[in-house]
Design a protein around this nucleic acid. Sequence first.
DNA 1: TTGCTTGTTGACAACTCTTGTTGTTAGTAT
DNA 2: ATACTAACAACAAGAGTTGTCAACAAGCAA
Lengths: 141, 141
Amino acid sequence: MKGTEALTTIFREQGLRVTPQRQAIFRLLEGDVSHPTVESLFDRARADMPTISLKTVYQTVHDLEALGEVRVLDLGTGSVRVDPNVEDEHHHLLCTTCGRVRDLPVEFDGLIVPIRYRRDFTIDDVQVIFRGHCEHCFDRT
Amino acid sequence: MKGTEALTTIFREQGLRVTPQRQAIFRLLEGDVSHPTVESLFDRARADMPTISLKTVYQTVHDLEALGEVRVLDLGTGSVRVDPNVEDEHHHLLCTTCGRVRDLPVEFDGLIVPIRYRRDFTIDDVQVIFRGHCEHCFDRT
DNA sequence: TTGCTTGTTGACAACTCTTGTTGTTAGTAT
DNA sequence: ATACTAACAACAAGAGTTGTCAACAAGCAA
């Protein structure tokens, strides 16, 4: 995801307005590697801006997604997660106990679908989710 | 997934009762490769059994899952899908237009996480979702 | 077969996450 | 500064799934 200033320019170019609410969300997401849910973004945004609504956070996240600045992930945890890292291709490691998500660089070249299975299917995207337990949750199981 | 008779035995062994509703669901799932949603199972079950409730279908699916007889998939389509194929390891090809899901045999050996990323993480499961468009939906785009 | 015990059912409400609606506020270009 | 209109907050509603509970029936024993 680009920086707050760059996003401001991009939003204006697209005819989208840059409001304090949106800037707050830009700032929260910048450099965030925790893959936050919309709800948790909302909670953090509310600390500074008590009247911000959940809907606004969803809206802004979707706008960022439409601009390709974030990726919205559904890892099967019940709620959607925001991943501001769109620069590096990566997969995800999900702790099924605490819900923490970690990025996983793509270092393997095995994800190729044999041509006979692709013959009548156009593949746009691959999502790989590793599920397990992180150090913290493994200890206390 | 095992056959209806075998499931009847297994359920009884577990102290679970085998009702006409459950047997109907066993029969619907046997050999089904369409990865149906619970809702669609419900609709089909209702054809023969008009009073069956959605809750009963969910319940039975979860019981089957607990016994390892089906897998419950969340492919990000909004609703959960039931996969009775637990015998062969496979990934999934999802058409993001019509929602059809196809099994994909695992023929590649690339899904190994480098040890430095596994050091403090225990991996239980890998889910790979290929998204794209099936023949039918590609033509009409 | 009969009756008892207990898991299951079906109807309904509640829940979580996300999106639609609406009048009002405020960002942006001129 | 002004007008245009997107975005806002508040609220309600939608979809999918799960909880509650009284009535029921499967399974077991005699």
